[in-house]
Design a protein around this nucleic acid. Sequence first.
RNA 1: GGCGGCGUACCCAAGUGGCAAGGGAGAGGUCUGCAAAACCUUUAUCCAGCGGUUCGAAUCCGCUCGCCGCCUCCA
Length: 488
Amino acid sequence: MKVYNTMTAKKEVFTPIRDNFVGVYACGVTVYDYCHIGHARSAVVFDVIIRYLRYKGFDVKYVRNFTDIDDKIIKRANEEGLSWNEVSEKYINEYYKDMDALGIERANVEPKATEHIQEMINIVQSLLDKGFAYTLQEGESKSVYFEVSKFPEYGKLSKKQLSDLLAGVRVDVNDLKKSPADFVLWKASKEGEPWWESPWGKGRPGWHIECTAMSMRHIGETLDIHGGGADLIFPHHENEIAQSESYSGKEFAKYWIHNGFITIDKEKMSKSLGNFFTIREILQRYDAEVVRFFLLSSHYRSPLEFSQEQLMEAQASLDRFYTSMDRIEDYIKFGQKQKPKGHVKEEEIELSIKDFAKEFERAMDDDFNTAIAIASFFELLRIINRYIDAVPPLDRAEPILSRVKGEISKYSAILNIFNKTPQQWQVALLKTKKITLSEAEINQKILERKKAREDKDYKRADEIRKELEAIGIVLEDKKDSTLWKVKL
RNA sequence: GGCGGCGUACCCAAGUGGCAAGGGAGAGGUCUGCAAAACCUUUAUCCAGCGGUUCGAAUCCGCUCGCCGCCUCCA
């Protein structure tokens, strides 16, 4: 299995540090607002990576944190007249609502920064003791800064030269830091801000230190995989490396995995540009599976352009998938009603199933290429459709089609898409398309039309078809039944 | 300004040295009471442009053009 490592800028063979154990730490979210589709991408990407690592037999410990104290949370609390922890608690709950809807599995540990204050203080103290950090008096208390020049490898992840960084930096006149590139480990708290007691007086943690404290406590001093959005490479992960490696004297993480951005009109989606969509507003109009499919339909490192058209396409692809699945189920249920039209050998289907599994793994082994993994499902379905078209005898077709279903559900569990029944998919569409007609009512209409057709009252039958189509339901007549589908 | 990435058909999107995956859309056909689905055929002699390396390049190298990201909080 190969994984692209931001540190080396190459795909590398993946080998865990400790036998079969894989410790993964992914930077989660700062909980001060609703999550947007960019957060969803990161969450879905790492969800699939974790699922695949487990499928490969690794013993994965997945840690994903919540940053529950920082400037934005404090600001939000002041705006809403709440305490900082009421804000963080609220948005953690909202986070779970969105992520659960998207089928994101919970991490093994989901630690909060504020539950690790003591660990952070210990690390900061140690960095001071070792001479990597210094204090500055700020008001009543002191802040602690990491002195970047003490870490010669600074910039190795983001491929930046310290001198270049300093050249471009905006100098704050009030800044007493030894160097503008130095970053805060522990912040002296200002009047009215939340604080914790520390050797430096009342203060709160800097942003980066929490990840060092939490990853070391829950995994160890060296992580197998550290991940997050590409925007975290600098400065967040760079700073984490500096403080962690200075503290432990060990490599902080073996593999660095970063997902690309969601763009809108080619520009990065961001709060400041105001061009973002929250997960929940998208889920109003599209089923969560559509969103997941969309997010996995391109490689995780590529930029991904978000638009209505993209979501519609994802929806159409899923519909095609479920239509084929329905056909398979239908064949198993009703079997052969016509004379065989060809002679597709079952051995060939066996082979195709094996090819599908191989192709899926080959794709995922190559830096989690979900785009190809998804394509492999469609390739298999095309072959199965062709097989069913040949009208094979049921005694031969039933076992092989059941196997196809089994294989599909085995691999779809890794992506956590393609896992509904065709029926559930259509019901999900009724909901997102805001069609108020119930399944029972639709079936009633179908029954009525069936009678009309039996009486050769095609005029009435067509009326019913048109009536349903007007509210967004299309009918497909099959040999033994009529299938209803939501018009896309 | 420094560093990095991207540019593949009408649209989305794989492919990183050996005849250009997959999905959507379009066209023609088979099937069908009608319709749909499905299947078959078809849609890039070519991968931003120009040059080079090679028996051979979308894939490697150089230059040019265009777009984007990071350098400040950010998934």
